[in-house]
Amino acid sequence: MGYYDMVESCWQLSDAALNYVKNAGRAVETPELWEKVFAPSPLVDQERTLRESPQRDKIFLKSPYGLQYRPDQKDWVPFRHGPVDLSNENNI
């Protein structure tokens, strides 16, 4: 899987979180999202997230990417936490 595909997966997880909130029709706290959306996802690095993000407002994926919560926009936005090697175009 190339890096761009990993970025795509990360955004899809963000979409899933937004859809969950939309379908709930109410304010959803991050622990609930963690339990219902993020923790069940095979993409998520549970151990690291539990260790480094006690508020669960930063979700680390097993890829070099993750999601962080932006309270002002009420949105989960991707970030990068690991190195990427772009020396080989096939990696992208």
Binding site: G2, Y3, Y4, M6, V7, C10, W11, Y65, V77, P78, F79, R80, V84, L86, E89, N91, I92
Partner: peptide, 13 residues
């Protein structure tokens, strides 16, 4: 397009 994608691989947001 390839370069924009690679930029996103470095900075996905």
């Amino acid at each position: 397009l390839a370069l924009w994608r690679s930029a996103l691989a470095l900075d996905p947001s």
